[in-house]
Amino acid sequence: MGMTRAQKARKYGESGGSTAAGSRRSRGAAARPAGVRPTSVHEMRPDELAAEPTRGSSAGILVGVAFFVGAALWLYYHLLVLQGVSGAMAHGVTAPELLAGGFGPEHVADFARGLGPDGHTGYKGVHATTGLFTPLLTGMGWLLFTGLNTPQRARKWVYWVVVLAYAVVFVAGNSALDAAVAHPADQGAAALASGLVVTRWILFAALVLITVIVAVSVVRRKLSDFAEGRLPGQRPRG
């Protein structure tokens, strides 16, 4: 059974019950002068704002996971799925999209004969599933990676245009390949498919170059911030 206020006063004195509350109030008053409201983030100058390390690291982890998933799917599609198409479906004839230097109508005709009707259906199914998810997820990973690590807005948009062009050309090239294999005598369809495949590989090389440039710039910024003591947890040098 608890003590009444009078019993507490007799045992601890009049100020005993209010000591903790008073100390809490005094600490709050010491932290901020009376009559001064806290500064809103919208009233701060740009040089007074600082990123929260926890949020930044969480975003970096998510972007890293997305980029890794996209890269892993790209490798799976080119090193396993298309190699299986070349071997099992086409009986040893290389899938046209693996030929970075392009191909002619003769190769398309050989590939179509190797596939046969059933193989052609399976080939179209590959383009409708893994061949569709690969450019979408890979492009998303590249968009997030370049967007997070490129502070210059103009350069960021240039990178994003390359990423989006790669995804569009990838999907369009798959459709052109389906049409060319379905009509192997159509030299125009084979030429269009070959041009899109070559463009796809050129854009992929550009994306690899962009990735290297962005990664090097990130390392240089981190080293510069470390040297100047601006990393989270470091004391600023002055």
Rank of each mutant, 00 (worst) to 15 (best):
P38S: 05
L79R: 15
E43M: 13
A30Q: 14
G195D: 02
L136P: 00
G2C: 11
A176R: 02
A185W: 05
G101N: 10
L132D: 08
I210S: 07
A180F: 00
R230D: 01
L80K: 15
F226K: 11
H183W: 06
G238N: 13
T211K: 00
G64N: 06
R221P: 03
E48T: 04
V93E: 05
Q83P: 02
Y159C: 05
G114M: 02
T94Y: 01
E43H: 11
G114D: 03
D186E: 08
F226W: 12
M1C: 12
W74T: 10
G101D: 10
L115I: 04
H120T: 06
R55Q: 12
V161C: 14
S175Q: 11
G102D: 02
R55K: 12
Y12W: 13
P236D: 09
A112H: 00
Y166G: 06
S217A: 15
G122D: 08
V36S: 11
T134Y: 00
G92K: 05
G238F: 12
R32M: 06
G104W: 00
W142D: 06
T150S: 05
W157P: 01
V162N: 08
G17E: 14
V65A: 11
T138R: 00
W74F: 13
G122S: 12
R155E: 09
R55A: 10
Y159P: 02
H120C: 01
L203S: 04
W160Y: 10
V212A: 08
V126A: 05
V161F: 13
R230A: 01
A21F: 12
S224A: 14
I210Q: 09
I202M: 13
S86V: 02
G114Q: 02
G104D: 10
T129I: 12
Q7T: 15
P53L: 06
G84I: 05
L49A: 09
W74Y: 15
T134P: 03
G101E: 08
Y76P: 09
A31D: 09
A100R: 15
I213R: 05
W160F: 08
V81P: 04
L73S: 04
G104A: 07
G13A: 09
M3Y: 13
A88Q: 13
R155V: 04
G238V: 09
M3A: 15
G102F: 00
A191F: 00
R24M: 08
M140Y: 11
H91W: 06
A180D: 00
T19M: 15
F103N: 03
A128Y: 06
A95M: 03
A21C: 10
D110T: 07
D178N: 07
G195C: 04
G233W: 00
S224Q: 12
G92V: 03
E43I: 04
P38T: 02
Y159M: 07
A95E: 00
T130P: 03
R45Y: 08
N149I: 07
A59Q: 13
V63I: 11
S224H: 12
F226D: 14
A51G: 12
W201N: 04
A193R: 03
F145T: 05
L82Q: 06
A176F: 03
G64F: 01
K156D: 10
L148T: 07
H120I: 01
Q152D: 14
L164I: 13
G2N: 14
W74N: 07
R45V: 11
F111T: 03
T94E: 07
S194K: 03
T150P: 01
D47H: 14
P232S: 09
W142N: 10
T134L: 03
